[in-house]
Structure formats: C-alpha cells, structure tokens
Amino acid sequence: MGCFSSKQEKQTPGFQDPVALAQETIFSVSEVEALYELFKKLSSTVVDDGLIHKEEFQLALFKNSKRESLFADRVFYLFNTKQNNVIDFGEFVRALSVFHPSAPPEDKIEFAFRLFDQKRTGFINREEVKQMLIALLSESDMTLADDVIETILDKTFAEADTKNDGKIDKDEWRTLVMKHPSLMRNMTLPYLKDITTSFPSFVFRSEVDDSNT
C-alpha cells in the first residue's frame, strides 16, 4: 500500500528528480522529497496541474489569491526563471535553496539585489526604490508626503551610493547589507531547516538513501 504513489508522482507534470535537485541545491534528497509535499499542496489550491500559478503563490502568502502586491510579483518573477508565468518544482526548490539558513550569504545578497533591480540594469536606481517604497506604504494603508519620501530616498542614497553616481551597484549593495543585516531578514526561512519534520509523508515513501548522495 505504502509504495503505490512514487511512480505516479514521477510522472506528474513539473516533477523533477530529487537526486538531481539535491545535487544542485543545499537540500538533501529527503528534504527535496519533503518539499515536494509542500509543492503539491501549493500547486493544487487553484488549478491542480502540478505547477504554481501566481494566484496560488499569492494565496499562500496572503491567504487571498486576488491580493495584488508588487513584492509578491517580484518574488514570483525571480522564482520563475523560465519566465513562463508558472513555477515548476525545480524552480521552487532551486529558489528556496537560497532561503535556507545555511545557504551562502552571497547568494542571499544577490537574490535581494535582483529583487530591487527591477529593470535588470545591474543597478538599483532611485526610481525603483521609490516605486517599492510607495508600494510598501500603500500595502500598509499608509501615506507619506512626497517630500518625506524624497528625504528618505536622499538619506538612503547618501549612505548607500558611495560612488555618488545616483545608483547602487552590487558592491555598494553588499556594503549596505553588511551595515544593516536586518535588510536580509526575509532572505532566511527557518522552516527550511526542519522541512522533513514539517512535511514528512513523502520521506516515508522515499526510494533513495540520502547517505548515497
């Protein structure tokens, strides 16, 4: 009885070999298999097709599939490396790997940089930061006068833009983050440390011994 589902799941659209994913990421094979439990749950809440649609992503984050968020859009966009508007299992595992407590800090810094570099210029410019600041205020039902927003941006760029060219490059970003570690607070998910105990059911069916990988 306990062995019936493994082959079926390997034929599910979006499923990828846990051994290969474990080799590419920080997760063990058992952890990748446990993440598949989570992925199955998230990818079946609106359309049960083995892929995470943006509405499903929003539903998981906000418990509301219709809630629009520039930030959730940015995160979805960065997870969806194939840029086809759905997150498959491989994309899900590779992106979450960056959020593991033991993932290299440089990977987290890079991911956060790309979050802000919306136009993919290799720099974070003032307009991009302003747009996100306004989105944050709107999300929090807060308003700030434009001159206050400009003052916050002046202060931010005076500190971060050490080359004084009006934009923040990767090195400047890294220096800023080192000074303000709280900027990276969203880049680590403690849940990922205990993923096999949170989503254990796949692990009990695993065909692969982690000690061999």
Partner: peptide, 26 residues
Amino acid sequence: TKPIVMNAFELISLSRGLNLSGLFEE
C-alpha cells in the same frame, strides 16, 4: 518632528509580500 531613522530598504523589507513564511503555514 522625529528624525527619520530607517532607510528606504529597511522600510521595504517590512513588506508582507517579501516574507515567504506564509508558504509554510496552513
């Protein structure tokens, strides 16, 4: 008036949309 103590990135990092812990919660 109170001085502004947070920079823009600190404020932005407070967004719920950037906190992925929701993916793991029921």
